[in-house]
Structure formats: structure tokens, C-alpha cells
């Protein structure tokens, strides 16, 4: 007995195809909506991403930028053997100090043991990996003993941190060229 059906024999297949096309069309439409405008401008990426990266805020200045406002330090620092040491290495990034041309906060000045620790970051002889042509090395506490100073002396009691040899040389000049720094 031939049964009667309301739908045609292929109607479901037809609907499947319609649904697939609709999904595909929806996908294309949504893609067009959410696609970043500059995508593909230069390659398979968002072109304006370059600009975003370019506009990342600069947080560290340069020694030149710091020393503009600190003329006294400037003279010392640039004349001394520490002239290649970055201001911001010890004091922190300029962005924490100046904003829109205005001073917003003071940067920290290292004190006491912190200073010693900073000095020894570079000058500690016991860390042997440091090339001699790059830097002068000292051993602690032998250095203090050699110079006949008290063992609890801090580095900055003899060495100005900005120009480490300044006071040493001045002392030498006073005592005479052959004299010890003490």
C-alpha cells in the first residue's frame, strides 16, 4: 500500500542545504562585522597594531633627559668614571618622577646597605665572570682592610656614587700624588 506523505521525498535534504547556506552566510556576515578595519593592510595582521605598539608609553628616559634638570649631578656624573651608568638603574624610571613636564613624585635614593649591594652588583671580585677590560673589581672585605678603613664602612663614605674617584683624587691631591687615599 502506497502511503501518502505531506512532505516531498527530498524536502529534508533541501532544508539541510538551506540551513548550511544560512549558517555559512551568517558566518560571512559576522566576519565582515567583527573584522578589524585595518586587518590585512600590510599582511595577515591588524595594520593599526603597529601604531598601538608605537604608542606604548615610554617609561625610562635617558641620562641626558635626567641630567637636564639636575645640573649639579650632571657635572659630577659626566666627569666621573660612572658616566655610563644609568641614572634610572639606581633611582627608578623617569615616568615615576615626571609626568607631562611636572614632577609627580620623588625617586628613591638608595641608602646604607642598599648602596653597598648596588656597588657589588658590578664590582664584586668574587663573581669571577666579569671581564677586566669592562670594569674594575674589588674583593670585600679585603678592600677595606687594604685601605685601612673600618670594616663597617660603606662604599659611599669614600666613593661618591656618581663619580667614584672624585673624592679619592681630591684627597690624593691634598695629601700629595704618592699618598694613600686615607
Amino acid at each position: 500500500m502506497q502511503q501518502e506523505y505531506k512532505s516531498k521525498s527530498y524536502s529534508h535534504v533541501f532544508k539541510i542545504i538551506l540551513i548550511l547556506i544560512a549558517v555559512l552566510g551568517l558566518g560571512v556576515a559576522v566576519r565582515a562585522m567583527v573584522m578589524p578595519k585595518t586587518f590585512g593592510e600590510f599582511g595577515h595582521y591588524r595594520g593599526s597594531a603597529i601604531e598601538d605598539e608605537m604608542n606604548r608609553p615610554i617609561r625610562n628616559g635617558t641620562n641626558a633627559s635626567c641630567l637636564v634638570c639636575h645640573p649639579y649631578i650632571r657635572q659630577m656624573h659626566l666627569e666621573g668614571v660612572h658616566n655610563t651608568v644609568s641614572c634610572e638603574f639606581c633611582h627608578g624610571p623617569m615616568a615615576d618622577h615626571v609626568k607631562d613636564g611636572k614632577v609627580i613624585a620623588d625617586l628613591p635614593m638608595k641608602q646604607g646597605e642598599e648602596i653597598k649591594k648596588l656597588c657589588l652588583r658590578c664590582h664584586n671580585q668574587i663573581i669571577r665572570a666579569r671581564p677586566k677590560e669592562s670594569i674594575k673589581m674589588i674583593s670585600m672585605p679585603q678592600h677595606l682592610e687594604e685601605k685601612h678603613v673600618r670594616i663597617d664602612h660603606n662604599c659611599n663614605q669614600c666613593h661618591n656614587v656618581h663619580a667614584p674617584l672624585m673624592w679619592v683624587n681630591q684627597a690624593k691631591a691634598i695629601v700629595g700624588a704618592g699618598g694613600d687615599s686615607k
Partner: peptide, 26 residues
């Protein structure tokens, strides 16, 4: 004048000269 209106991060002297004139995408 110096501390008030001076160096901002936007106008630090160039270290690579002429870079600020290069406004091309690349």
C-alpha cells in the same frame, strides 16, 4: 623654568637621529 616645563618623556633628545621624521608605517 627647567624643573617646571622641562624634559618630558615625549621630547627626550633623540639617540637615533632622524627617527622622528620617519612617519611611514615601516
Amino acid at each position: 623654568v627647567i624643573p617646571a616645563g622641562a624634559m618630558d618623556l615625549g621630547n627626550i633628545p633623540e639617540q637615533i637621529t632622524g627617527m622622528r621624521d620617519d612617519t611611514e608605517p615601516f
